[in-house]
Design a protein around this nucleic acid. Sequence first.
DNA 1: GCCGCTGATGTAATCGATTGCAGAACCTAA
DNA 2: TTAGGTTCTGCAATCGATTACATCAGCGGC
Lengths: 341, 341
Amino acid sequence: MANIYEVARQAGVSTATVSRVLSQPHVVSPDTRRRVLQAVELLDYAPNSAAKNLRTLRTGKLLVTVPDISNPFFALILQGIEDAAQREGYAVLLGDTQHDEAREDRYALMLKRKEADGLIVLGHRLPHEAASLVRAMAPRCAPVVNGCEFSPKLGIPSVHIDNAKAAAEAMDHLYRLGHRSIGIITGPLVSPLSRDRLRGATSRAKQQRAERDFVVMTGDFSIESGAAGAERLLGRRDPPTAIFCFNDEMAMGAIETAKRRGLRVPLDLSVVGFDDIRFARCVDPPLTTIAQPMRAIGEGTVGLLLGILHDDSEAPSSVTLPHTLTVRSSTAPPRANRIKN
Amino acid sequence: MANIYEVARQAGVSTATVSRVLSQPHVVSPDTRRRVLQAVELLDYAPNSAAKNLRTLRTGKLLVTVPDISNPFFALILQGIEDAAQREGYAVLLGDTQHDEAREDRYALMLKRKEADGLIVLGHRLPHEAASLVRAMAPRCAPVVNGCEFSPKLGIPSVHIDNAKAAAEAMDHLYRLGHRSIGIITGPLVSPLSRDRLRGATSRAKQQRAERDFVVMTGDFSIESGAAGAERLLGRRDPPTAIFCFNDEMAMGAIETAKRRGLRVPLDLSVVGFDDIRFARCVDPPLTTIAQPMRAIGEGTVGLLLGILHDDSEAPSSVTLPHTLTVRSSTAPPRANRIKN
DNA sequence: GCCGCTGATGTAATCGATTGCAGAACCTAA
DNA sequence: TTAGGTTCTGCAATCGATTACATCAGCGGC
C-alpha cells in the first residue's frame, strides 16, 4: 500500500501538506484539501502507525492484563474497558496471564518497549517492570491502574467496590434469616480482594458472637473448588446451615455438592455467591449474590488511566463503586429456625 | 528511558552492535556482548517497538475481532487464541465489535495502518477493509482468517466444527428418545453458522418425515431470546416435546420459561443446547448439549494465520474440528412415549 | 509604495531502531 | 610475504510519518 510520499506526489504537494490534511484539515486550503483527499482515495492510503508512533511517542493502545478471560466476571470488566477505550480512540492489547507471574512480567515489558501508552492490571500483583516504572516516575503518576483489587501496597489508583462491606452485608443477610453456623469459601488469600471480603465477613461473625460457628475454607474461584470446599464443610460434625462463597462459580459448585449429598437448597442449606454473573440466575435455585458493576469498573479504570495520560493532574485517586445484595432463591431461614415457627 | 544510542555510548560501541547483541548475540564477540549487556542493564534499556516495527514492517501483533467477549463461548476461543499467540511471540489486539458493522470496519482499518500483522475474525462478516485487502492480495493469501463461521463466500480460511452434522446429531438424539415434535431456536440467520445448523436439523426432520412437527424460531443467542422463543413455542396449540437451542444460553432461557410455565425438564420438555460452555452443567437439569472444542478452535485460527504470515505456502485450507454430543439430564423420552412404556 | 500581518505550503530534522556493505584485525596456508 | 578467509564491528541508509521553522503570496492600512 502507498505511503505518504506517493500520496504527496499524486496530489502535487509536499508530505507535510498531506499530513496536515489528515490531522488538521482546517489549516489547509479547501482546494488543496480536496486534491489530497482524492489522492488518498485513489491510492487507498492509510498512515502507517509505526511511523506515527515513533514520531509522536504515543501508541493509542492500552495494555490490559487479566488473570483469566474465560471467567465471565473478568470478561465483563474487559468489555467495559474495551468499550470505553475505543470510545476514547484507544485500542486494547489483551494479556491473559493465567495467574502466571512470568506472563504478567512479560506483558509489563511491553509497556517499557512503548507498545502501549498505559497498563490496566486486573490481577492482584504488580509486575516487576510495572513496579519499577511506578517507582521511576514517582512522585508523578505512572500510567498504570488497577481494577477490582484495591491495595495501597500496589501504590497505584484502582477502581473497585467495598469488598469488606459487601461481604458483611452478605453475612448480615444470612444472620438476619436466622442462620448461626456459616461456612465460607474464599478465593486465594494472596489477593487483597479475598482478604477484604474475609475481613468483612469475620467482623460480622464476631459481632454476632458466632465466631465458633464460622468456618473458613480456601478456594480458587473455580466451580470445582467450590464443590470441594462445600464437601469439606458439609462433611463436618456440625455442618453449617449456610455457605457464603466469594464468587458465583464456587457457589454453583457448592450447590452441586449439596444436591449430590441430598440436601435441598435453600431448605437444608442456604448459599450466597458473589459477583452476580449472568448465569447466577440460571442455576437452580437462582443465586442470592452480591452484584458488582463489572462494566462500570472496566470503564472506570480506563477513565482513571486516561486521566493520568492526559495529565489532567486532578489527583487520580481510587474509586469505590456501589454493590448490591441481590436476593434470589438460594437463601432462606435455616430448617431448625423454620420448625420453630 | 534510554535509547539505543545511549546504550551504545555507554558500552563504547556502535548502535549496530547493540542491536546485534539483542537480536543475534552469536555474531558478537563474548567480550563486547558482555559490555553491551551491562550497559543495557545499567540504563534499564528496552528497544522501542515503534522504531523496530517501522524498520522491519512487522508488529508482532494479531488483531482479533469478537462479536461479544462477555459470551463465554467467545471468551474461551479468545483464550485459546491468546495462549497460542503468546506462545508464538505474538500479542493480541482485542476488538469487541458488539455485532456492530461500523466497529468491525474500524478495527479492520488497523490492519491497513499496519497496527497488526494479521486479523482473526470471529464474527460472520468480513469488514470492507479486510475484504478489499483479500481482493488486493489474491491469489496470494491475505493474513485474515476466520473462526467458527465457515463460509466459502468470505474467501478466507477458517477453523470450525461441522455445524450441520452436529445439529443433525442433536436431532437424532431427540428422535431416538422418541420425540416427534421438536422446536428449534436458532441464532441470527445472517450467520452461516446458524444456517448450517438449521440445515442439518431440517434435513433430519425431513428424514423422519416430521417436517410438519418441526417449528423454527429465530433467537439472538441471548438468554432472553431463548426464554422468549420457548414462550412462543410452548404457547402453540401443539407445543413441541423438545426444544433444540443453537446455544447454551438460549437453552437456559428456554428452561427458565418451561419452569415458569410449570413444566418439568426433562419430564415434560426436553431441552438441548449447543457449545457446552462451562455453566451448561450447572443449570438444573444439567444441559444436554453439543460440545465444541473452543480453545482448539482459537489455537487453530492462530496456527492458520501464522502459516500465512510465515508463508509456509502449504495451502492453508480450512480446518474442521470434532464436536461431541454430551448427554446430560435435560433430555428424556417424551411423556406420551413414557406412558406407553 | 512599503510595512506588517495572515494564511498556505514547503524544507528538512527528527523519532529509534535494523541491516547491507565495507573495512579492520587476525589467522592460515602456500 | 602474500593471498584468501573468518570474525567482528562500524558507517550510514532506511522505514514513514510529524512538525518547527522558513518562505512566499496576497492584502489592508497608512
